[in-house]
Structures are given as structure tokens and as C-alpha cells.
Design a protein around this nucleic acid. Sequence first.
DNA 1: ATAGGGTTAG
Length: 715
Amino acid sequence: MAASLSTALDVHFTIPKSDTKRPIFFTSPIRHNPTKKRLAISCNSSTSETSSSTKPPQNISESPSPKNPSLSDQLKPLSATTLSTKDHQAQLLSRPKSTWVNPTRPKRSVLSLQRQKKSLYSYNPQIRELKLFAKKLSGSGEDEFESALETIPYPPTRENALLILNSLRPWQKTRLFFNWIKTQNVFPMETIFYNVTMKSLRYGLQFDIIEELANEMVSNEIQLDNITYSTIITCAKKCSRFDKAVEWFERMYKTGLMPDEVTYSAILDVYAKLGKVEEVLSLYERGVASGWKPDPITFSVLAKMFGEAGDYDGIRYVLQEMKSLDVQPNLVVYNTLLEAMGKAGKPGLARSLFEEMVDSGLTPNEKTLTALAKIYGKARWAKDAMDLWERMKSNSWPMDFILYNTLLNMCADLGLVEEAEMLFNDMKISEKCRPDSWTFTAMLNIYGSGGNADKSMELFEEMSRLGIGLNIMGCTCLVQCLGKARRIDDLVRVFNVAIDGGVKLDDRFCGCLLSVASLCDESEDFTKVLACLKQANPKLVAFVKLIEGEETSFETLKEEFRAVVRDAAVETRRPFCNCLIDICRKRDLHGRAHELLYLGTLYGLYPDLHHKTVKEWSLDVRSLSVGAALTALEEWMGTLTKFVQRDEELPELFSAHTGSGTHKFSQGLANSFDSHVKKLAAPFRQSEERAGHFVATREDLVTWVQSRIPSSVIA
DNA sequence: ATAGGGTTAG
């Protein structure tokens, strides 16, 4: 029963009773229109009496992400501008479906409600020998094909030929046999021969040949049917020829052939993969308006699309549609929905959906469990992760190597070292799930983030023995770990193995090496690390040399910094700058550190560093390295000194936001900040009420600044 | 794989 979906659904919003019964002449009650739809759904949620009181506790952690703004956030701009009165608002929000179909003049149907029927095979008593022959043909070389054909045990009648054609692979053989029966001229070529041949070609991703055959059908006046079109469309999709998929779909309509639900859902998936959400929903709604009852495959397509977009409202729409159309989700639909919930950042809903799935009697498969393990790991839900694991074992739910590797990644996210080691050993003694490069990468991540350089190196040696190549991610984990342990010679060895193994070094890896360089006290180590970095990114190393040069002018620095930043991947630009500042501070180049912070700010690498309200000015250093954060603090104090000197107006409160230190990477920041503040005797104190904040009152700060003015660092 | 549609990993 579709009622089993209700828990996950009703917890978050209530569907108005009137919407659960679908008037036949209306399309779906909730339009998926970027603005209208969100408003409509959110309105239900906000007006629901149960929405906040019945939410399970885990949803507290699911405060709306920027992608899914809260209801009030969504309504704010509208209520402030467009909507003046409550009535007006209600009218807009509850607007019925925009596609209204006049019952007296029904809109034309967009799909055939009858699925194309397949002809039944009649029993062929020669089936065994013909299949054996097909196997022989399949195994023959291209040049032996002709002679192999002559050993055909029975004459190539229509039925015999079809049977053989169906059993042939790969596509080259299917094509040769298809061409051969055409030359035999024993029977006219029918649609089914083309369809069977096309299917084999699709396995080989031969879209061009499929299209050739389709055109041949047109010129020979052989009817293309729904099976032909759906095969063409899905082949184009698998070959990423989406334009061709759409083109053939449109051609079908033009020839007057109506798609059935198989062809229709195939084209829905094409538009979904193109990210054309509006088109998909329009087609979906028009289909439903034609009297179509979509099946689970359609909902899987919709769920996947919304999942890819991280669109939580869309996912709710799919759940609601299934409920109102009384379609029970199958395993694939659940899997897709779980995946989608994960992408939309809703671990709590994924969990309750999973429970519903199990309660409904379905057994999770590898994909289900992979989705869930990923979600719990990302959400850092250790308890749920462990519960899941126990259930997997006690129920003997299926495992495969992807699930094993995902579980290892989950362990990495949760810091479960012993559990990971158990899994790793399980894999080693298993038949089908031997550790591969993904496995080793996950293990390197686990040992690396735990700072266990010995175990990391053991893995590295084991990989060499087993001939499993190090990839860029494993290499980055390893180098970071060895760098933190100051095992620079091991680091260099690993680096050289990676280079010899053809690992393509990316900007993230360069950032990792640069951060290791920033940790080096010994100039010998520093030189060794930079020598590695030079092979990956010579310009970056040249820039480090430039920083160190006393004679380097600010203009030169600016120019070269710009070039370095421009060439770096966007997500590595700020880390690069952070590391460079750290290097400066390590080498007592404080002036340079300030110049780099200035340049980083100039090029937009620190967009939200400062925040000012009338009552409070704050400095948000959460995305800064320790060196960069301290530089930013000094810079800020310098600015405040000027304000005090000029007797300008200041707010009551000052704060610096370092983060609370619960995240593994931000742990050090609050501590370093604290000791630095103490060293400066600055009046910032860790706030009791606001975790991760250091606060100072205006009074204390002004007193402190004035006491420093004669010897201020800032001229 | 017995003519056609949907789901697993940085």
C-alpha cells in the first residue's frame, strides 16, 4: 500500500485532503515551478499544525541549507514586495494547476495508454542447435565468419534467423549476420529484425550504426514502432547524444506515431539527464492529464533528477505524486529516493524512508546500503552507521565491493579505525571483494587523518607488493600524513613512486605539498618539499622564492600572485594563499604575510572576513589557516588603532569567529588564536554563550589599543 | 542478453 509512504511524508508537511483525490481533468496539484511550486509546498508545511511538533529529533540538525531556504526566507521577499494582503497571498499560493483542460474540448493525448504488444515466439524445436550455432558464430573471428555461416544447421527461415540474431554478440557479429540474412532474400525484413539488431548495437554503444539502420527502415518503408524508437532513444542517451534522442522523439510524433509509456519514460529520462526539469515536469503532467498512470520507473526517473539537483521540494513532490496516484515504490525507487535524500542533505528523512522500505517487506540490496552508508558517514551519524552495520550482519544483507569501499569511506568520515580494519581484513579473505585501489585509498584516508604514518606506509608498501597503483587521492592523504609526521624522506619516496606510476598531480595535491612546506622548520626539509612541488607546479615554487626575496617589490608580488591564483583551481585558491601566508610567518616574513593577506582579499579569496553591524564588528577566520588568521587579527587591530587615534565611532562589541573546534580541521585554530591573543595581551576572551567566538568590549579594546599606540606594530 | 524504459563510490 502507498500508505506506507505516509510517515516520511506527513512528518514534514500535510497534504490537503482535497489534493489526495486527483480530478481527472486537472494536472498535478503542485506545480513544479521554481517559485510557485516551492511556495505551494512550503505553505502547506508552515500552516500544518503538526509540522514542528511531530518532527523527529534528527531533523533539528537539518536546518535549511542555503539551497533549501526556510519558509520564512522564501516568503520574505515576496511578502515584502508583491504580496500585500494575506488573502492575496493565499490566492497565489493555493492557485490550482495552471494546465486546466476543458472537459468539453479535451486536450490532445501525449501518449498512448496501451503499451505496444510484443509478438510471442512460437516454440522452436531446434532451439538448442541454433543457439549452439549462434555461440559458434559469436566466437568466430571476423575472417572466419563467412565459413562459419556455412555450418548453419537449419535453413535460415524467419524464426530460425530471429533466434540466432537474438543470441549473437558482440554487435559486430549481429551486424554481419543481419546483413547476411538480408542477402539471402528468403523472407521480407520486418521491424523486429531491425529492433533485435539495434539492441545488440546498443550494447556496443554504436549509435551511428543504429541511426543508419533507422534511416534504412524509413527509406525501405519498414515501420518504426515504439520498440524501435525507444531503442534508438536509449542508445543515444547511453552515448550522450541527447540532441539525437530528442530529435528521434520528435520525429516519432511527426510520423503520427504515439509513444507508449516505455518510450515516454525513456524520453523523460533524456530531459532529466539534460537537467531540463521544467520540460520533464511538463511532459509528466501532460501524460498524467492524458490519463496515464505512471509506473515506478517513471518515479525513479523523477527522483533521480531531483536528487541530482539536490532539490528537496522536488523529492517531496515525487513522494506525494506516488501517494496520490497510489503507486507503491519498488526497491529501485526507494534506492533512488534514498540517494536523492542524501544529495539534498536530509539524513533523517533518508533514515525514516529506509525504515519504511524495510517495514513494507522489501529487502535492501547493495545499492540501498551503499546509499545509506554514504549518508550516515557524511552526516557523521556514528550511532546510525553502527546500527546499520549490525543489521547488515545479522540479516545477511548482500554486500559487494562498492558497498565495502563505501563502508570504509564511512569509517573514514566517522574515524572508526578498528571497524575499518575489520572490513579491510574481511575483504582480503573474501572471494569476490578483494581490496582494490579504492579500498587502499579509503584506508590511507583513515590512517592519514588519524596521523598514523607507520600504518600509512605499511599500506603503501602493501600496494607496491600487490601491484595496486596509488591514485591522486591516496597520494594526497599519504603526503599530508607524512608531512605532519615530518617524515620528509618517506614523503619524497612516495612522491617519486607516484610520478613514476603516472599519477597526474592536481592543484589539491600541490596545496597539500605547500602546506607541508609551511610546516617545515628545517630548511633542508623545506628545500626537499619544494623540489617535489617544483615538478608539479614550477610557477608556485617560483612564487615562493619571490616571497623570500627581500628585493621583491610589492608590484611584482601582486602581478605574480595574480598569475598563480588565476592558474589554480577555484577551490584551491584560498588554501594556496593560506599556506603562503603560513610560510611567510614561519620564516619571519611578517610584512609579506600582511601583503599576501591584502592581495588575497583584493582577489576575493576572503569574501566574508569582516562583518559589521551597529552593535558589533566581527572577524570571521574560520576558513583561514592559523597563520592567516593571526595575520588577519593583527591587521584588524591595526585598523582599530587608527580608528581610536582618529576618535571615530566604534560599536559596543568586537568578536572573532574561529569556529568551535568540533571539526577536525578547525581544532587547532581556536587554540592557536587563544594563545596568540594572550601573547598580545589583547582583551579577547572565549565566549561562554557563543561557542567558537572570541569577544571583546569596546571599552577594554580601546584601553588596550591606547596602551599600545606608542609601540604599535602598524605605523 | 530471447525486440523497448529507471538505481550504487572521492
